[in-house]
Design a protein around this nucleic acid. Sequence first.
DNA 1: ATAATACTTAGAGTTCACTCAAAGTCAAGA
DNA 2: TCTTGACTTTGAGTGAACTCTAAGTATTAT
Lengths: 137, 137
Amino acid sequence: MTIKEVCSRFGISPDTLRYYERVGVIPEVHRTAGGIRDYTDEDIGWVETAACFRSAGMPIELLIEYVRLSKEGDGTIAARCELLKQAREHILAERQKCDCALEKMNYKIGVYEKAVQTGVLDWNNGACGCKCNNDKE
Amino acid sequence: MTIKEVCSRFGISPDTLRYYERVGVIPEVHRTAGGIRDYTDEDIGWVETAACFRSAGMPIELLIEYVRLSKEGDGTIAARCELLKQAREHILAERQKCDCALEKMNYKIGVYEKAVQTGVLDWNNGACGCKCNNDKE
DNA sequence: ATAATACTTAGAGTTCACTCAAAGTCAAGA
DNA sequence: TCTTGACTTTGAGTGAACTCTAAGTATTAT
């Protein structure tokens, strides 16, 4: 599969794909005799993982470390497992922040929708109960 | 409330708070006679909103636009409502990506946990069903 | 065979969201 | 009053993640 096809499949630019390979977010991609990238199914699997994890906000450094460990072989299985669990905590926290922001947005949108009809914003009755960022101690 | 107190309450640095005010992510903050920031409850409400929405990945530009519209008065209520709805779609999409990444992570962690015991990674039985980034057309 | 298009690399440039530095002002304690 | 430490502004610097540029090579259509 050509770089173009991989790009359109995952919605990533060719520059980004080459960059991912260069810095080690994905392992080296298979090439044609002329040196042009020709992604195998395995290559595509790596791209899919990278694209999926990146789009959820997982930092590039963690992906690089994961690929590095994978190249080292079966001795790093436990380490990779730990890394994935750590990444999962990171993404769970991200989602928690999304939920908190959504709660606040829904509250505000409710107030605004009333205001669109009445012409007056009324923040007094019932504040948003979300605890986001509040009382950090 | 001093800038220090606001910082520790929301887990933001003073530099970031001043930056938010400078570029318009929050409106101008109340000052003492000497020119030192002294956050009122209303100021703190703005900070809370900014911190919450930012932590969910809402871009600064949208927050600036929201504050700009708010300053213009009641004529922009409908516009602000629209902006919030647009922001909500944005955050919902973010959360969707988190869920997709979590599905993939859980699948991988399952494979690795088996491998930690057996010593062998087995990706063959049952692939991750998540559709993240796949088949973009 | 040749022209047009698409690929390659290395390295520089861009964007976003802060973060720091320098130079000066304010406030509280000795 | 003086000193110490926290505040102020303006503007420059940083890090992450791309994104673009230039110069060159490969592939495809005519």
